[in-house]
Simulated scan of single mutants.
Amino acid sequence: MMPRNTNIIALKSDSFSDRIIKMYQHLTNCRNENVLSKQVLRSGTSIGANVTESFNAQSEPDFINKLNIALKEADETHYWLKKLHAGNYLTEKEFQSMEQDNIEIIKLLTSIIKTKKKNMGLL
């Protein structure tokens, strides 16, 4: 396994978590939105937490499981971003920027999971 500081999914999910935290602070402090922003904070930061947990997986199936959880959290984050946009809490530009990063993470996680399953003979 690559060191954490050169692992692309670790870097991207960590950077995305930082952006989610800043977005949450902005939404609560400047736009007085506290419900949806809390949901996206939880799911958006959970992606990186589960990716980090995967580094200490006890087995290959456990590794896949941790990344599957991260993928589910990324999908949930996408849902909440769309709701924040629909509620006019995120501008089109803000939404597109966050969505682009989120979709990139979803694609990376999907690819890693599929490759790992293929290498294990599960696909």
Score class of each variant (00 low, 15 high):
3 P>K: 11
4 R>E: 12
4 R>A: 14
4 R>V: 14
5 N>P: 02
6 T>Y: 04
8 I>V: 10
14 D>S: 13
14 D>C: 06
21 I>S: 00
21 I>Y: 01
23 M>H: 02
25 Q>C: 10
25 Q>L: 13
27 L>T: 00
27 L>I: 00
27 L>P: 00
28 T>Q: 07
30 C>W: 07
32 N>E: 11
33 E>C: 03
35 V>W: 00
35 V>A: 06
38 K>H: 14
40 V>A: 00
41 L>H: 00
41 L>I: 03
42 R>P: 03
43 S>G: 00
45 T>K: 03
45 T>N: 05
47 I>Q: 08
47 I>A: 05
47 I>Y: 11
50 N>Y: 14
51 V>T: 15
51 V>N: 12
53 E>V: 03
53 E>A: 11
54 S>F: 09
56 N>D: 15
58 Q>F: 07
61 P>D: 08
61 P>G: 03
63 F>W: 11
65 N>F: 12
66 K>P: 01
74 A>D: 10
81 L>D: 07
81 L>P: 02
82 K>T: 06
83 K>D: 07
83 K>Q: 15
86 A>F: 13
86 A>V: 00
87 G>S: 12
87 G>E: 12
88 N>L: 12
91 T>L: 08
92 E>H: 11
94 E>S: 12
98 M>R: 04
98 M>P: 01
99 E>F: 07
99 E>Q: 13
99 E>D: 13
100 Q>R: 15
102 N>H: 07
103 I>L: 13
103 I>H: 06
104 E>L: 13
105 I>E: 08
109 L>V: 11
110 T>Y: 09
112 I>Q: 03
113 I>F: 05
114 K>P: 02
114 K>A: 13
116 K>S: 13
116 K>L: 05
117 K>T: 04
118 K>N: 09
118 K>Y: 08
120 M>L: 14
120 M>H: 04
121 G>L: 00
123 L>F: 08
